[in-house]
């Protein structure tokens, strides 16, 4: 088979290169703030890559992915807090668990809890279609949001601070460039997995479900199971991003669960280009550029973000990747 590189792939490759080069430049200029900013881009992008699996490939317009982002964040926060205070988290069969500061365990826990939440939310939401699905995913996320505010054990409205960054092997995770490296590795891994999924048998069924559920069912593949699986995997990626986000800020609050967060994750996906592998990464980068650079000039940067988003939706439906690389092609 001939190896051909199309424009989207060229764009993706140069984009990966930038993700390596920019922090290196910031490091050499001794500007840790920019590294932290890049880390934020990478983490938010991961949340977007997660949503893109459900939304872009599966056509599932989830307006409640903040739920998974926040759940991941709280999983990290709660485990770390218990570990630090040496407080009992739970005991079962005589085994007592006091939390952990091991990132691997935290990531696993975040994805596990995110998956459980996604199974429940997805099971109910996927029974409905179209506009109902949008609103129900939103409502479920709100439910968790209000629960987090009302439940005082983990800080309620004030949120929960994580006083030290969690550990991974013997790395100095407090060093911005090390933490960036961890996050970038995970982002590339998640993106690679989503790309593999897209081209797999499962991906074929999922993308078919987006275009024509009736057809998929009539050849004997149940759309519900395919969509629920995609929804759960999507939520796991977003929950992992949430855990990293909590670690980055060393703080979790109900804000991570709010519907504005859902809207923002969706914006990353759309600004970049729906269903594009690297769309969310580009979208998240754009968003941070808006927030920090425009935010430095005017506090009303949200106004310009709104105008940009409106312009993309009305006039450039493929997002930025779409404008640069042209239409999506299936073989």
């Amino acid at each position: 088979m001939m190896l051909s590189v199309n424009r989207e792939q060229k764009l993706n490759i140069s984009f990966i290169a930038l993700l390596f080069i920019l922090p290196a430049v910031a490091l050499s200029m001794d500007e840790p703030f920019y590294i932290t900013l890049m880390t934020k881009v990478v983490i938010l992008a991961m949340a977007g890559v997660g949503l893109n699996l459900a939304l872009g490939l599966g056509g599932l317009i989830s307006f409640g992915h903040a739920a998974f982002f926040g759940i991941g964040g709280y999983a990290a926060g709660i485990l770390a807090t218990h570990y630090m205070n040496d407080e009992l988290l739970f005991s079962a069969f005589g085994y007592e668990y006091f939390g952990t500061d091991n990132m691997l365990a935290i990531w696993f826990a975040a994805m596990f809890v995110g998956a459980i939440a996604a199974i429940i939310i997805g099971y109910f939401s996927l029974r409905t279609k179209g506009v109902y699905f949008i609103m129900i995913t939103l409502a479920f996320a709100q439910m968790i949001y209000y629960f987090a505010i009302a439940w005082p054990t983990y800080g309620g409205e004030d949120g929960l601070s994580i006083y030290v960054r969690n550990n991974l092997f013997d790395l100095n995770t407090l060093d911005p460039i090390i933490f960036y490296g961890i996050c970038l590795s995970l982002l590339l891994l998640v993106t690679f997995l989503v790309s593999t999924l897209r081209n797999s048998h499962f991906g074929s069924a999922l993308q078919a479900a987006r275009q024509n559920e009736q057809r998929l069912a009539s050849v004997g593949i149940r759309p519900f199971g395919i969509q629920l699986t995609a929804f759960v995997i999507s939520a796991m990626a977003t929950a992992l991003a949430g855990a990293l986000f909590a670690d980055l800020n060393r703080f979790v609050s109900p804000d991570m669960l709010s519907w504005h967060t859902s809207g923002e994750i969706m914006i990353f996906v759309i600004l970049g280009g729906v269903g594009r592998l690297f769309g969310p990464i580009l979208g998240a980068a754009m968003f941070i550029v808006f927030e920090y650079y425009l935010g430095g000039i005017t506090e009303h940067w949200g106004l310009f973000l709104g105008i940009a988003l409106l312009a993309v939706v009305l006039f450039a439906r493929g997002g930025i990747v779409g404008v640069i690389a042209g239409e999506v092609k299936h073989d």
Binding site: F63, G130, I134, H300, G302, I307, R317
Partner: peptide
């Protein structure tokens, strides 16, 4: 519906910020 959600979400951003202004 996706386009509708996003465009009207954009309107929220625009109107909220304009009002704050």
């Amino acid at each position: 519906h996706l386009d509708q959600v996003l465009a009207t979400y954009a309107l929220i951003l625009i109107f909220s910020e304009a009002t704050r202004w």
